[in-house]
């Protein structure tokens, strides 16, 4: 379980997060919605230690990791959490197979045979078998996202953090990614936190949804109850009005 309490983060004079509270329960898929620039990516990067919060606390499986050093994050947090970046962030000078192999680098206890088997299994799970020797710039947008997911699951993480996994994809590929996320959650037993704008897509796969607004989580509810909430901001967001106010 990941628990975030009263998390604050500013960049200069820009207050991005001010008092975020969020809980990610074991085995679930939780989606965090929110307008662009509201701090969703900052929030999930803070969980894995890529961004240091100003105050508040983040605890993972009961351990407060807020003030962990880079070394502590490397030893105690990152082996158990994988991050799927918005644009994949595959290392473009190496093949897909080498990308996955490097992701396994920190796990010293894995034998060479196990490493090879994990690469092949990860690619098979995302339906990219045979793409081991392909370079990222030779992949289509959907394949790139799937390759990034393959890299993320190769380390057998307990938690998967997805930063807008379907941005820029057509509806068919978007559904492929959703099916994949759901399949991985069930097959590998991972707990997933997804950052997204896609309400209808996330409604299909999430157990719960949260809305981040003005640097705070204004509401968290079960997905099946999301259309029955008595929260003006949340309802405006669901009806697309949050965007119309901004633009």
């Amino acid at each position: 379980m990941i628990e975030i309490n009263q998390l604050y983060k500013s960049f200069g004079k820009l207050n991005v997060l001010h008092g975020v509270d969020l809980t990610l329960c074991d085995g679930e898929i939780l989606t965090v919605f929110g307008k662009s620039g509201v701090g969703k990516t900052v929030l999930i990067k803070a969980i894995i230690g890529l961004i240091e919060p100003d105050s508040g606390s983040i605890s993972i499986d009961g351990v407060d990791v807020t003030n962990f050093s880079e070394k502590q994050f490397n030893e105690k947090v990152r082996p158990h959490i994988s991050f799927v970046f918005q644009d994949g962030a595959l290392w473009d000078s190496m093949t897909v197979g080498a990308n996955i192999e490097l992701a396994l680098h920190a796990q010293d206890h894995i034998s060479e045979a196990e490493r090879r088997s994990r690469i092949q299994e990860s690619l098979r799970l995302v339906d990219l078998s045979g793409a081991e020797d392909v370079y990222p710039d030779e992949l289509s947008g959907g394949m790139l996202k799937r390759a990034a997911i393959a890299r993320a699951i190769a380390t057998r993480p307990r938690y998967l953090l997805y930063d807008e996994p379907t941005t820029g994809l057509d509806p068919i590929l978007t559904n492929v990614i959703y099916d994949l996320i759901m399949h991985l959650n069930q097959k590998l037993g991972t707990t997933s936190l997804i950052i997204s704008h896609d309400i209808s897509g996330m409604e299909k796969i999430s157990n719960r949804v949260s809305l981040l607004h003005d640097g705070k989580v204004v509401l968290t509810c079960d997905t099946e109850d999301m259309w029955e909430q008595d929260n003006e901001i949340f309802n405006e967001f669901l009806n697309g009005k949050a965007y119309s106010h901004e633009e």
Binding site: S82, F85, D87, L102
Partner: peptide, 17 residues
């Protein structure tokens, strides 16, 4: 380029310095 395309963050996320 690696920094702006989050490839450096990706290294950190996999516990690689």
């Amino acid at each position: 380029t690696m920094k702006v395309t989050e490839q450096v963050d990706a290294l950190r996320s996999f516990a690689i310095d």
